[in-house]
Simulated scan of single mutants.
Amino acid sequence: MEAAEIRKLAALEDKHWWYRERRTVLARSLDALVRSGEKPGRALDIGAAGGGNTRVLRDRGWDATALEYGEEGATVACGRNIPVIRADAVALPVADEAMDLVVAYDVLEHIEDDKSAAQEIARVLRPGGTALVAVPCDMELWSEHDTAVGHFRRYDRDGLLSLLASARLRIEEVRSWNVLLRPAAAWRRKRSTGSDLDDLSPLLNFGLSAVIAAERYLPVGRLPGVSVLVRARRPDPAGGRRADH
C-alpha cells in the first residue's frame, strides 16, 4: 500500500466504520480463544500499517508486535508507542515456532507470493498456535479501488483455504464478513476511480456502522460477503496447550 494510503488510513481508522468494526471482529475472535482455554501469549500482527489491530491485541493482554513492510506505517506505529518491525511477510525475521498467534488481516492480497507468506505464518507459529486471517473476496468485486491500494487479487473461499492448507494449517472456522453491505459495495466499486478510503459524513458513518454491526447477531456467515475471515491452527502432534510463560 502506498504511503499516501497509509497516511489516510491512520487518520481515519479510529472513527471509520469499516476499521472500527474490523477491530471488533478481531476482539471477538480473541475473546473466543480465551473462552476455549487459550491464554494470551506472543502475537505478531502482519501488515499492521499504523497498528490499529496491534493495539487491540495488546489491550487484550497479548505480547504483540506489529510487522509492517513500509516506512510510513512503521513510523505511525512507532509514534503510537507500538513495538514494530519493518520486514517483508515472505521472510519474517522471527524464529521458528516463536508465536502463539499470528494476525494477517487484509495483507495476503497485497503480496504477490502469497504462498510463501502463508508458509512463513505457519513456520513462526508454535504447534497448536492460531492464525487469524482476513482477505477481500470475489474477483467480481475487483475495481480501481483494488488497484489503487495495491491488491494483487481478491480471493474465493476455496482458493484461500487451499492456500492455508498448502502451508499445513488446519482450518477451524471460515465465514464471510461485510455481507449485508455487499450490494452497496458492488454498486460503489463499479463506479470507483480509485481508493474508496474516504472521510465520510458522521451520519453516513453511523448508518454503515449500525448495519455492519448487525452481522454480529445474524446467521449470515455462509452468504457472499466482501471479505472472508478464517481461523486456522498449526497442528500440534502432542495435542497439548501452550505452557504459561
Rank of each mutant, 00 (worst) to 15 (best):
I82F: 15
S143H: 05
G225R: 11
L200T: 07
K190D: 01
A48C: 09
A243I: 12
P40I: 13
L101K: 11
W177I: 04
D114L: 03
L164H: 00
M1P: 05
V103N: 05
H16P: 00
R58C: 05
G41R: 04
Y155G: 01
G129S: 09
D236W: 08
A32T: 11
R22F: 02
N53W: 09
L223T: 07
L33P: 00
S166D: 14
C137H: 04
V135P: 01
A238L: 14
D198L: 14
G128W: 05
I121H: 00
I212D: 01
A184P: 00
N205L: 06
V124E: 01
L67C: 03
G221Y: 11
H145Q: 02
A98D: 05
T65E: 11
D158N: 12
I82V: 15
L229C: 12
G51H: 12
G51Q: 06
A74E: 04
A104H: 02
T130F: 11
G129D: 03
A27E: 14
W187Q: 07
L204F: 10
G73F: 03
R22M: 11
Y217W: 15
G207V: 11
R86K: 13
N205V: 08
G37F: 08
S162D: 13
V174R: 00
A77F: 04
A66C: 08
P237Y: 11
D114F: 02
L208A: 02
L164M: 06
I6C: 12
R28P: 07
M99K: 10
E68G: 00
G47K: 04
L132V: 01
L204Q: 13
D113A: 13
G240D: 14
V211L: 11
S162T: 07
A32Q: 12
H245A: 15
V94W: 03
T130Q: 13
L180A: 08
P235H: 10
R28S: 13
P136Y: 05
A104R: 02
T130G: 08
L164P: 01
A185R: 00
L57N: 04
V124Q: 02
S116N: 09
D88Y: 01
Q119C: 14
D100C: 03
R241Q: 12
V133P: 02
S166W: 08
I46D: 01
P202C: 06
Y217T: 12
R175G: 14
R188Q: 09
S201V: 08
A134V: 14
D14I: 09
E140C: 08
W17C: 02
L164C: 08
G41I: 09
A27G: 15
W142A: 06
A3S: 15
G50H: 10
P127D: 05
A134S: 13
E173L: 13
L164Q: 04
P127W: 08
L223H: 09
V56N: 03
H16L: 06
A89C: 09
E215Y: 01
L125W: 02
Y105W: 14
R153Q: 06
R20Y: 10
R7D: 15
A104E: 07
G79T: 10
D156K: 10
R23F: 10
A64M: 06
G221R: 14
A64V: 02
L57I: 13
L218G: 07
L160E: 06
V149L: 06
E13Q: 08
V230R: 03
R157K: 14
R42T: 12
R7S: 15
P40N: 14
I171C: 02
R168P: 00
